[in-house]
Amino acid sequence: MTAKISYADVEVGTELPAQTFPVTRATLVRYAGASGDFNPIHWNERFAKEVGLPDVIAHGMFTMAEAIRVVTDWVGDPGAVVEYGVRFTRPVVVPDDDLGAVIEVSGKVAAKLDDHTVRVDLTATSAGQKVLGMSRAVVRLG
């Protein structure tokens, strides 16, 4: 593995470059096809409202896939991710307009662990609300 970030250069508190990820209805249709998750709450507004949601919501696994990009773009090698976990706390609501929603993700090094690994704690928000909790990745550095 060749990670472009060196373990020696990282401290607890080191911030990873934050990123924003736009999500439209088209994004969700595409993710549904690629992932095989065709649950209608992710594309059918009528169905979503029938089950008590405010509108169509993004796949939790889509948000999880975007959040880890803050880590994989930082280290360069996605294979450096050793562990990754999240709790789905609130849905990302995606209105039927050209703007959709935006997921904002930031991360910082929370602990330096053995074997050149660090724990990164991620924060993901949409419309000012946290959408992931306990979002943590362990990644191996160079």
Partner: peptide
Amino acid sequence: VVHGDQKFAYNRP
């Protein structure tokens, strides 16, 4: 059913 938590531990990609 709703998805509460998800975690992965990788031996390799």
